[in-house]
C-alpha cells in the first residue's frame, strides 16, 4: 500500500515540533481522501514518548528510529535512515517542514530517489491531471501549490510520473488540529544498519546554541503590525490573538515600541527589520516613511486606520477605514466563518 508519510522534526525538548503536527493534520486529510494510511517517521534519541504523542493527529503508523547518533539532527545520519525507509515503504506522498531541517534533508532525499520536490507549498490538494502532450490522465495526484517569483504568481506543481510526491511546507501555513484524542496507532521500530556508522562520521557538531523560541519576524509570511494608534499594550494583545488565528507574526512601528506596547525585536522599519511578507496588515499605523521603508515590498498590504488620508493607505492594496479595535474582531469572525 502506498501511504502518506510525514517526516517529523523534534524540538529542543525532544517533543514533536509544531510544524510536523501541522503536517500530520494535513497528512490525515490527504490520507483519508486517498483511502490510505497516515504514517510518520520519527528519528531521534529517546523519542518513544514523542512518537506516541502523534496518534491524536490521526497517525496510523510511526516508524521509530531511536539512536544517539540521530540527535541532534544532522543531515547524513537522517538521510541514511530516511532514504532506506522510503525505499522500503514506497509512500506515494512524503511531507517535510520547510525549516532548516526539512529544507536540508528533503532535497537530498529527492535527489537520491530521483523524484520531484516542491518547496514552501501553501496548499496541498488531491486531484486529477491530464498531460497536455500525451493526453494521459493521472488520478489522485498531489497538487503542490506555492507562490513563486517573489510572490507574483501562484503555481500548481504536479509530479505525474515519479513517486513519492514530495513537498515542504513552512511552519504556520497549515493548521494544527487534533483529529481524535482517542486515536491509536502503532509504533514500527526501524532497524538501523551499517550505513549509519559511516554517515555518523562525516560532519561533527562542535557547538550548538538554540533558543527555544525567539522572536524573529523577518521570515514571516504574514505580519500583523500595530502602530501608536493601537493605543495601549493591552490593545496590542488583540493583535497577538489575530496573528495567532491567521498564522501570522506580530510587528510594530517604532512609535509603538517606544510607547512600550511590545518588544523591540518586533520593530519594522528603517531602524528595525525589513520584511517582505506575502501579506502585511497595518493596524493603527499612519505610515511614516521610515516605517514604510521596512515593509513597502510586502506582496499585499491591508491598512486598518481611522484616518482615511493616512499615508499608509497610498501603498495599501486594501484600506479599511475604521477603528482597529472593532474592525479586527469583525475580520476574525469573518475569517473563521470562511474557513469552514
Amino acid at each position: 500500500m502506498n501511504n502518506v508519510l510525514v517526516y517529523c522534526e523534534l524540538s529542543e525538548k525532544n517533543t514533536i515540533a509544531d510544524i510536523s503536527l501541522e503536517l500530520c493534520t494535513k497528512g490525515r486529510q490527504l490520507a483519508t481522501r486517498l483511502g490510505c494510511r497516515l504514517q510518520a517517521a520519527v528519528l531521534g534519541s529517546q523519542v518513544g514518548e514523542a512518537a506516541a504523542s502523534l496518534y491524536p493527529y490521526g497517525v496510523d503508523d510511526v516508524f521509530l528510529a531511536d539512536d544517539k547518533r540521530l540527535s541532534p539532527y544532522r543531515n547524513l545520519p537522517h538521510f541514511a535512515v530516511l532514504s532506506k525507509l522510503i525505499q522500503a515503504q514506497q509512500p506515494q506522498i512524503v511531507l517535510f517542514g520547510a525549516s532548516s531541517v526539512g529544507r536540508d534533508l528533503a532535497p537530498r532525499i529527492a535527489s537520491f530517489l530521483r523524484c520531484g520536490l516542491t518547496a514552501d507549498c501553501t496548499a496541498l490538494e488531491i486531484g486529477s491531471h491530464e498531460d497536455a502532450k500525451t493526453g494521459k490522465t493521472y488520478d489522485d495526484i498531489l497538487y503542490q501549490i506555492r507562490p513563486a517569483f517573489g510572490g507574483n504568481i501562484i503555481a500548481t506543481i504536479v509530479c505525474p510520473e515519479t513517486r513519492p510526491q514530495m513537498a515542504t511546507v513552512r511552519e504556520g501555513v497549515m493548521k494544527k488540529e487534533v483529529y481524535d484524542p482517542a486515536y491509536k496507532g502503532t509504533v514500527i521500530p526501524v532497524r538501523l544498519d551499517a550505513s549509519l556508522d559511516s554517515a555518523d562520521k562525516a560532519v561533527e557538531i562542535l557547538s550548538r546554541e538554540i533558543e527555544e523560541q525567539k522572536i524573529d519576524i523577518k521570515g514571516a509570511q504574514i505580519i500583523v503590525a500595530g502602530g501608536y494608534g493601537m493605543g495601549s499594550r493591552e490593545n496590542f494583545q488583540l493583535l497577538h490573538r489575530f496573528a495567532h488565528l491567521i498564522g501570522a507574526s506580530v510587528g510594530a512601528t517604532r512609535a509603538a515600541v517606544d510607547a512600550g506596547f511590545c518588544e523591540s525585536e518586533r520593530q519594522i522599519g528603517q531602524t528595525g527589520v525589513t520584511v517582505r511578507p506575502k501579506l502585511y496588515i497595518a493596524c493603527g499605523i499612519s505610515g511614516a516613511v521610515q516605517h514604510r521603508a521596512g515593509m513597502d515590498q510586502s506582496a499585499k498590504i491591508i491598512s486598518i486606520n481611522t484616518d482615511p488620508d493616512a499615508p499608509i493607505n497610498a501603498i495599501a492594496d486594501y484600506t479599511i477605514v475604521g477603528d482597529a479595535m472593532t474592525v479586527i474582531p469583525q475580520f476574525m469572525a469573518c475569517y473563521k466563518k470562511n474557513l469552514k
Binding site: R114, P147, I153, A155, T156, E161, D317, V321
Partner: peptide, 20 residues
C-alpha cells in the same frame, strides 16, 4: 519530474487602493 500544471498571476497594482 515536477511539471507546472497551472500558473495564476496575482500581481495587484499598488496604485489603486481598494476601500473596504
Amino acid at each position: 519530474p515536477t511539471k507546472v500544471k497551472q500558473i495564476v498571476n496575482v500581481v495587484l497594482s499598488h496604485k489603486e487602493s481598494v476601500v473596504i
